[in-house]
Simulated scan of single mutants.
Amino acid sequence: MIGPIPFQIPTEFLAQYGAGELVRYGAILKSAETGRIVAHLQQTGVLDQVLGVVSNFDPTGITGLIGVVQNAQMSSKLSALQSAVGGLETLQLASLASSVAGIGVTAASTALILLRLRGIEGQVSGLSDQIEALSGEIKLQSIHKVFSDIAGAIERIELAERRSDADQTVQSAEDRLHYSFRELSDITGRVLLQDKVDAALARSLLAGLSVCSAAQVKSLYWLNELEAAEIQARRHYRRIEELSYKVTLDQMQPRLAHLDNSDAVALGLLRDVSEVRARLAAVPSLSGHLRGMECHGRAYLSQLEEQREAPLLVLAA
């Protein structure tokens, strides 16, 4: 295991981002001029704290960035965030962190991942009438089972270090997350193909896929299986890419025609799928970068989780 991983506080990068010189693609910052990757953006323990104390934090991002910022301002923990980035950057940060995919959620604490998952499942439960009205085999009970399996696997990862069989525990959880991602992606695909698509349900399922993928990749990082994490993240990306073919604007507009604001909702779903794809596409690059630096996966996670001053850190590419 090497020494401290050379993270940087991204003041310069956020300034360039605000000026339009850099563009974000998932948790990657790229040069707007050349398309070259310049940094891998990751959230830290202090950002986990800010998001974890927001009482009505919406894990799918439906409430938008303003609600996150306003509520975060009620928390004393925002002082650390404000000291690292200014007003405009604070809004940008909240927008990134509260998106449907989340940013750098691979490095988020298991507690925050679990919080996001439970919030998503709660929103799904609130759509029980709409789910029962769907055709085919899409039932609330089957969706709850998948979420329950994901939550159980995350809880095992959270307790792993307190067990004598830590590696075996995480390996078992990673295996469960692998199958859960496939099950949830199949359900999401069927929901998106309904004659009348329930947009809120589709959005929650997409957020669930992002969280499940993040948890599986994190378990592989914990086991220091960086090459496997890179391969698995590519598979997740390809699955989301397949789903994206079902939500083109011309396909979604007739399936959302029952809504008054169907065009806006269709565009929103397209943005959500694009955001999830971008986050998943960022993970293989990060994994390869860590392998090239000969970083230990667990050391990478620990350093981010223990950071209590800067809400965001970057690994320069």
Rank of each mutant, 00 (worst) to 15 (best):
L192D: 09
A200C: 14
L184C: 00
P284N: 00
K246T: 08
S219C: 01
L259G: 02
Q232N: 14
A215Y: 01
D175A: 14
S204P: 04
R235G: 13
V217I: 04
E305W: 13
E309G: 13
Q171S: 13
L313P: 02
T169F: 05
V247D: 02
A233R: 02
H236F: 13
V314G: 06
L270R: 14
M293H: 04
A299W: 15
S274V: 11
E306C: 13
M293T: 06
M293R: 09
Y221F: 05
N224A: 02
P254W: 02
K246F: 11
P284I: 02
V247Q: 05
D250V: 09
E241L: 10
D167M: 10
D250R: 12
L205N: 03
R308F: 07
I231C: 15
D167Y: 05
A202C: 04
A166N: 01
G297N: 04
L304C: 06
P284F: 00
T169D: 03
R176D: 10
P311R: 08
L301H: 07
L249K: 06
T169I: 05
R190G: 09
D195H: 15
L312E: 11
L313F: 03
S172Q: 10
D167V: 05
H258S: 05
Y237G: 08
R239H: 11
R235I: 15
L177V: 05
S244Y: 09
L267I: 13
L226I: 07
I187Y: 02
G189S: 05
N224Q: 03
L269G: 09
A202D: 05
R176N: 10
L313D: 10
P254L: 03
A214G: 01
Q216W: 05
D272R: 12
Q232W: 15
V211F: 00
V247N: 08
A199L: 14
E174S: 12
E227R: 12
A264N: 12
A278T: 08
Q232D: 13
L205P: 07
R277K: 09
M293E: 05
